[in-house]
Nucleic acid binder design. Structure first.
Lengths: 344, 344
DNA sequence: TTTAGCACTCGTACCTACCGAGTGCTAACA
DNA sequence: TGTTAGCACTCGGTAGGTACGAGTGCTAAA
């Protein structure tokens, strides 16, 4: 176990390195006003800390930098999340409330705000639409066998998609079908619609036996929600350029490339759906590209269902305390926003 | 005027520099199999070309590179757009047709395809929705004074927005109002809706005088299309990292930052709405950030109306011939896609 | 246990010399 | 008159060498 003095030195060193991105030497630490021990003593302690695996030396005559284990200890035991000023949170809250009707915008804006508060790249995984329930479905004919299906959910979101009306189906019966859908499917969560179609409707539909196939085809078009990944939004993807450890274009490119592949980002977030806050430091990330980065994620919820993730990606030398504070605030604001104002 | 030999040397030099990004020396040119003049002669010609302003010398003992004027001459007189293989175009066309119903996706995908065909950053300005005409408008009540307005255009696109129903307005009359809107406004282009509201409806509406204010408020909500910038999509924003002239993070950052600001991109495209193909080389761009870049744009049209722009942004040392070829193909494919399949 | 002193390490900055690609000029050649 | 060979010159890039300084580990004294 670490002594109190070792903990103190470790904490000061990590703080300093987070700020300066330069290896920290014993003199630097001893110069701090609240430190009354000499550089030599600190050197001894640092040597011990290195032996224990909390510190590393880039080369013999340089100061020490935290190892991954060092960061982990710092996050788990030394730092405490900084309080975000109420002002920021309030303004965020009122901002989000103002345009709660446009879910995509909320998510996008959250990403932007998150990255501007932290100065790191932010990742926001939108709430999963598919848990919302069907309020109303409607079909608007356009021209030659084209129509728009409009799907309204109880959260006030509206989806629309163009469908082709199969040849063998009469114009009048289409409207009957839609009424049927509304009677039977309203109240079902979107992701269950397709199943519900099979269980609820098939029997009734057999009556129009000659059109059965066509009708089912039409319904499928209207109701099939590809189990789509919730949408991913990034904010501040160029923040990484401010970090001295990424001044080299060759280090930069893989990361920026990854930002363009929502598929990669999805992999990055795997396993972050568990409630609460997660910190993944360096190699703790499974994705190769970010093994020099840390990822901090939080979830937000509606009605106790987990529905989304927000995260911040930065160098391992990240301002953990501040980022965690910000994430906690925003995640709770988001949870409230969705709870209070969509479900009443 | 340039002699044929000077033109030939200029062309070879530009081609070579585009490929290698290194200053081109006289020996390099004379070594090409189809060149039968000696380095010394070429040196003389190059000295002349430099005096005329077509070439530059980074320093005394280096080869020559094209000046802005050199690129301009190359684009205007020397290169010819390369043919894009029919295969690529066809597959693009069929791809776009397949999901023509999702306009945003078409635009986004076009950006992706464009950048992967050119290896440069692509910019696609979506078709302006506002020239599309109203086909149908509808209001779906949700809960406590909230409703969704659904607007369908003759191009098959669907817009929806949440509106609040003013207090002093009865539920039944709302539906009457909407019918009124449909009677009077169908066929108007979206961007004229707001005006049309004033001219067409006010008279009729006076009848319900006590609700007049409220009704107009509601209509405004439904029908006001902020003169919104057509949406901008970028593809391959990290392509720029492959260019040796942007290996320096300090050169890179302004550009990547710009990519995040759709506002900046909009400024970049100012003046590209004129029909046909435009090439802006280096300083010909008004935006400071891209004065080391060239921008090539083309427009695509529906029914002869200009409705969108596609563009490619790369270093001044850009493969003009290939990019122009690609742009021409894609712009014509896009024009066809929108023409053929939405308007019949 | 802490601290002062000191020799040692090693990365960085700076200087210098050198190399070679490419030039411009001159003079010879077709 | 246009083209080419030859040659001295320029200058950026690189390699090697030196000086500097921050920081260390170790030893011995307090």
């Amino acid at each position: 176990m670490l002594t109190d003095r070792q903990k103190m030195i470790l904490q000061i060193l990590v703080d300093d390195y987070i700020r300066s991105a330069e290896p920290v030497g014993s003199r630097t630490i001893s110069k701090r006003p609240d430190i009354k021990i000499s550089p030599a003593t600190i050197r001894n302690e640092m040597a011990d800390l290195e032996e224990l695996g909390f510190l590393e030396q880039p080369h013999t005559s340089a100061g020490r930098i935290p190892s991954q284990k060092g960061y982990r200890f710092y996050v788990d035991h030394l730092m405490q999340p900084s309080q975000v000023e109420g002002l920021e949170v309030d303004s965020l809250r009122s901002y989000l409330l103002k345009q709660i009707d446009q879910m995509e915008q909320v998510v996008q804006q959250t990403a932007t705000i998150l990255s501007s508060l932290t100065n790191y790249t932010s990742i926001v995984l939108g709430p999963q639409k598919n848990v919302a329930k069907l309020r109303h479905i409607q079909l608007l004919p356009l021209q030659n066998h084209l129509a728009v299906a409009i799907i309204v959910t109880d959260t006030g979101h509206v989806e629309n998609r163009t469908v082709t009306i199969p040849e063998g189906i009469s114009a009048e019966s289409v409207q009957n079908y839609v009424e049927l859908l509304n009677r039977k499917l309203v109240g079902q969560p979107l992701h269950r619609l397709k199943d519900a179609l099979r269980t609820e409707i098939v029997a009734e539909l057999r009556r129009y036996s000659e059109q059965f196939e066509h009708a089912m085809d039409l319904f499928d078009q209207m109701v099939s929600f590809k189990d789509e990944q919730a949408k991913i939004y990034l904010g501040g993807t160029t923040m990484i350029l401010n970090q001295p450890e990424f001044r080299d274009v060759d280090k930069l490119k893989p990361l920026l490339d990854m930002f363009q592949q929502s598929h990669d980002i999805a992999r990055l977030l795997e396993g972050t759906q568990a409630p609460g806050l997660q910190v993944r430091i360096g190699q703790e990330n499974t994705v190769e590209t970010v093994r020099d980065c840390s990822l901090i994620t939080a979830t937000y919820a509606v009605d106790g269902h987990l529905i989304g993730t927000i995260g911040v990606l930065g160098p391992t030398r990240m301002e953990y305390a501040r980022v965690i504070g910000v994430l906690q605030s925003i995640s709770s604001v988001l949870s409230n926003v969705y709870n209070t104002d969509l479900h009443n």
